[in-house]
Computed example of a mutant assay.
Amino acid sequence: MPTPEFIVALREKIGHDPLWLPGVTAVVLNADRQILLVRRKDNGRWTLVTGCLDPGEQPAIGALREVREETGVTAVAVRVLRIQSLAPSAYPNGDQVQFMDVAFLCHAVEGEAAVNDDESSEVGWFSAEDLPPLTQRELACIADAYADRAEAWFAS
């Protein structure tokens, strides 16, 4: 998916300066409690489904939209897993960003997992015991998804 128009418009004004953005992460589990992952085209890395919210979009709705857009799977949001500021990063073109991320536990309800956009090269379901390499943050989100607690994690 191309850069959202609202970000393109902001970049025309601020150039490559740091931009604070609202992000979402979806830990999607199927009926067998497998985890839905996507392999990014840009770096070949497997990741949880993530994305940037559109202006005014509610976080859970945005997370479910990203799941559907990237994988073709329809899911429901169950609970907030964690809320955190991610580390600042930069894109190859020099744009600097930092995301405030809300991670959700989601349950798949219909649809076959498949590459459904131009951002991913593969989509697949993985057992917790057979995950490809993931970041520490992604592994923490997955651990939170399997934990039997209602509280969301946040830094304090």
Rank of each mutant, 00 (worst) to 15 (best):
V38T: 15
V38I: 13
R39E: 13
R39A: 11
R39M: 11
R40Y: 15
R40A: 12
R40D: 15
K41C: 15
K41D: 14
K41P: 15
K41M: 14
D42E: 12
N43V: 11
N43S: 13
G44A: 11
G44D: 11
G44N: 11
G44S: 12
G44F: 10
G44Q: 10
R45A: 14
R45Y: 15
R45H: 15
W46K: 09
T47W: 13
T47H: 14
T47P: 15
T47C: 14
L48T: 02
L48N: 05
V49Y: 01
V49C: 02
T50M: 06
G51H: 00
G51K: 06
G51D: 00
G51F: 04
G51S: 03
C52V: 10
C52Y: 05
C52A: 11
C52E: 09
L53Y: 03
L53Q: 03
L53E: 06
D54C: 10
D54T: 13
D54L: 13
D54M: 12
P55A: 03
P55S: 08
G56A: 06
G56T: 09
Q58A: 14
P59I: 03
P59Q: 00
P59E: 01
P59S: 00
A60K: 08
I61D: 14
I61H: 12
I61T: 11
G62H: 01
G62T: 02
G62P: 00
G62W: 00
A63K: 04
A63S: 02
A63T: 04
A63F: 02
L64D: 04
L64H: 08
L64C: 10
L64N: 03
R65L: 03
R65F: 02
R65A: 01
R65S: 05
R65M: 02
R65Q: 02
E66D: 08
V67E: 07
V67L: 08
V67F: 07
R68E: 08
R68Y: 11
R68W: 12
R68G: 07
E69K: 10
E70N: 08
E70P: 00
E70D: 05
T71D: 00
G72A: 01
G72T: 06
G72H: 07
V73F: 08
V73N: 01
V73K: 05
T74S: 13
T74G: 10
T74Q: 12
A75T: 00
A75P: 07
V76M: 05
V76T: 04
V76Q: 01
V76Y: 06
V76H: 05
V76K: 07
A77H: 03
A77G: 07
V78Y: 01
R79K: 05
R79I: 00
V80E: 09
V80G: 02
V80N: 07
L81E: 01
R82L: 09
R82I: 05
I83D: 09
I83S: 10
I83L: 12
I83K: 12
I83N: 10
Q84P: 13
Q84T: 12
Q84S: 15
S85L: 14
S85Y: 10
S85M: 12
